[in-house]
Amino acid sequence: MKMELNQVKAIDELIKGRRSIKKFKPDPVSIEEIVDILEVAKWAPNHKLTEPWRFLLYAEEGKNQFVDAFLKTQAGSDGKIPEKAQKKAAYFREIPLHLVVVMPEDPRQKTWDEDYGAVCAMIQNIQLAAWARGIGMIWRTNDWIYNPVFREAIGVQPGEKIVATLMIGYGDFIPEAKERTPIVDKINIIRS
């Protein structure tokens, strides 16, 4: 199947135009629209169609569970939360949606690698499908997602990996594109 040139250019521009969004408008994002986006994104390349993903979507008052789990990882031995962590928690509460993407950690390295690749491809599909609809996000892999306290508080089981926390909303600020290295500097073409 070959697409029309204008369709190809539109896809190229979508890919090049997508940005990670850190500053969000307070406007709510429809959960139904996120489900629709996930329905599209699931068409990512996926060896043997194992569909190695599951999602935890935190919206409205449910965001408190996500934020509280984060805060538990920040508490000192005295139980106090540092001011920096409190500010980050306030920022997290303002973001309309948090989507945690989880995969099973298969003990077979090849399967683990294939599953991780599939989940990452799906996350890129999520970002592109959302961007096409005017929804922005940032893919986070902060150190606290590895903390057993956070994992347990949000229901991530032993033998599962958090691949991403996607913070989702309508962008209040769209950053400029950052320069990328030309591919000719990164490719070694072997012809014989």
Rank of each mutant, 00 (worst) to 15 (best):
A44T: 03
N125Q: 10
N125P: 04
K84P: 08
Y91C: 06
T141H: 03
M137I: 07
W144V: 10
W53E: 07
K2E: 13
K23S: 09
P148G: 01
W131A: 03
M122A: 01
A10N: 08
K23V: 15
T165P: 07
W43S: 10
R191D: 12
R108E: 14
M1Y: 10
K87A: 11
I138L: 10
I183T: 12
S20N: 07
G159C: 04
F24Q: 00
I145D: 04
I34T: 01
I95K: 01
E51I: 08
E51G: 08
Q124G: 10
Y58K: 03
D106L: 08
T73Q: 06
L128A: 06
T181A: 08
E152M: 08
K22I: 11
K161S: 13
P26N: 02
K2P: 07
F173T: 14
G136C: 06
L14D: 04
F55G: 07
E51Y: 14
R140F: 04
A90R: 10
Y146W: 14
M122R: 06
L99N: 01
Q127L: 15
K16E: 12
F173P: 04
L49W: 11
I31V: 12
Q7T: 15
I190R: 04
L57C: 03
T181K: 12
I123G: 00
Q124S: 12
R54I: 08
F24T: 00
A69V: 12
P182M: 07
